[in-house]
Amino acid sequence: MSKNHWTVFFFLLLFVVACKKDSPVVTEIERFLGFEKPVNFPVPVYNFEANPVTKSGFELGRALFYEPRLSRNNTVSCGSCHIQSAAFTQHGHDVSHGIDDRLGTRNSPPIMNLAWNKAFMWGGGVYDLDLQPIVPITTHEEMDENLENVLSKIRLLPKYTRLFKAAFGTEEVSTARFMKALSQFMLMCISSNSKYDKVMRKEANATFTADEQAGYMLFKAKCASCHVEPLFTDGSFRNNGLAKSPINDQGLYTATLKETDRYKFKVPSLRNLQYTAPFMHDGRFLTLAGVLDHYNLEVQQTTNLDLALQAGGKLGIALTETDKTTITAFLATLNDQEFINNKLLSEQ
C-alpha cells in the first residue's frame, strides 16, 4: 500500500521535473502556431487557403489518424501502418500489413513533409492530400471499410461530436471535414530538424564532419538530380533500374496508362532512412548498403530506365567503398530525432 503510494509520489515528482524540462513543448501546445514553413524549405504546394491548420482541426485529425474505427472491424488505424517511431512508416514490413493480416503490395511510405507533395502514392493516381485517405480506408488489404460506414461510426461517438464542433463550429461530420482534419494532422508532420537542416540554417554552429562533407559533395554529384534538396525528392516519377518485381508492379503506368510511365515510381525522400527500412516501393532492400549496391552494380535496363542511370552507356552509379562510407555518413545527417519523438504527433 504505502509502497505504492511512494511509487506514485516518485512518478509525480518525475513528471513535474519532466514537465519543467518539456516546458517549451508545453507552451508551444498552448500557443499552437499552425503550419510554419521551415526557413530552409520551399513554398508548400498544399492549398492552405482552403484548409488552414488550426489547433482544434489538428487535434481532431490526430484523433482520427489513430482511430481504429476507420477500419471494417475496428482493428487497424492509419497509425498502424504509419508508425511515428518509424518516421510514420511500417518499419520491418516490406509490404503493408493490414486488416485480417492481409498483405498489400507496397511499402508504407512516411507521412512526412506532405505539404510539399504534388502527387501521392508510389505510383501516383492521387493528387490532393484531402482525397488520399479514401484509398487506404476502402482498400481490401488495408482497412477494407467504406467511407459512409466510417462516418456513421464516428457520428455515434460523443468524443468526435465535441472535436468536430471545436474544429468546424458545428457537430456535423461530413466527408470534407473528415478529410480536412486528417490533412491538418498530416501537414503538421514536418521533418526539418535533422543535423543537415541545422547545418544549412547555420544553427548552433552545426557543421558536417569531414566524412559527412565528402558524402554531401558526392551526393550532390550522383544522387541530387532526383533526390533534390532540401526535401530530397523532386516529386517526379522515375525508373531507377530495379529489376521487375514478381507481381510486375508497373508504378505510374497503372494510373496513366502511358507507355512512357511504365515502371516509374515516385522518387522518395531520403530523410529518416535510419527509421524507415526496408526500402523501395516494395521494400525489397533491408539495408542502405543493399540500396547502394543496387545503384552501383544491379541497375537493370528495363523500359523507361532514367537517363541519369545510363550515362555514357554504363548502367548505374559507380560507387567505391569509400564513396559508400561517406554517402552513408551524409545520409545519416538526415535523420531527425525531434520528428520521431515529437509528442504533438503521437497518439494521445
Binding site: 493516381g125 492521387v126 479514401i134 482498400t139 467504406n146 467511407l147 459512409e148 462516418l151 466527408t175
Partner: peptide
C-alpha cells in the same frame, strides 16, 4: 466520395485514381 458506399453497393468514386 463517401456517397453510395463501396463499389459493390454503388459507390462511383475511384480512390486510387482520384
Amino acid at each position: 466520395p463517401a456517397s453510395g458506399g463501396d463499389h459493390e453497393s454503388g459507390g462511383m468514386y475511384w480512390g486510387w485514381n482520384a
